[in-house]
């Protein structure tokens, strides 16, 4: 019963709106990052993660190569266990790669920066990153600075 132009208009409307939805997914959100084209997970123990949150960026040489998937407290070692998912494309990271928690800008988000080591073996699924550097906690830095300067005065 409904005429053809009606159907065309409705068709246009629906496809435009679905295009908008795709735009939101692909251009606005991290949907394309979530597309699992293979990845592997490594663990890292940190003495203190500071304000690191799950889904934080993991980068090497400033290029994002993965994300933090889980942060938990390790009751055996009394430190933080961070699981890092790294894109399968980057499967040749040396096994003595070190990780440190950094801040983007002065007030920006915390992220993990990886620095490559020199071994020929590569990190595998489930491996541990041995060399880690905790987040810089501002209060501790300041107290350390004050303590040191007090020492110097003596």
């Amino acid at each position: 019963m409904p005429c053809k132009s009606l159907e065309i208009l409705v068709g246009l409307f629906v496809s435009l709106c679905i295009a908008a939805l795709f735009f939101l997914a692909l251009q606005v959100s991290n949907y394309s990052d979530l597309q699992d084209n293979g990845s592997y997970t490594v663990n890292a123990h940190f003495e203190n993660v500071g304000g690191l949150k799950s889904k934080a960026l993991v980068s090497m040489a400033g290029v994002p190569i993965g994300r933090v998937t889980e942060i938990s407290f390790d009751s055996d070692n009394y430190d933080a266990l961070v699981k890092i998912r790294i894109d399968a494309r980057y499967n040749n990271l040396p096994s003595d790669t070190s990780a440190s928690i950094l801040t983007s800008g002065l007030l920006g988000d915390k992220y993990i920066g990886l620095t490559p080591g020199g071994l020929d073996e590569f990190l595998q699924e489930g491996d541990n990153i041995e060399l880690t550097q905790s987040a810089l906690v501002l209060e501790r830095l300041i107290s350390q600075f004050l303590f040191n300067s007090a020492d110097d005065d003596k």
Binding site: C17, I18, A20, L21
Partner: peptide, 9 residues
């Protein structure tokens, strides 16, 4: 659909 359109635009 309209809400998605609203956000995108």
């Amino acid at each position: 659909l309209l809400a998605a359109l609203f956000s995108a635009i």
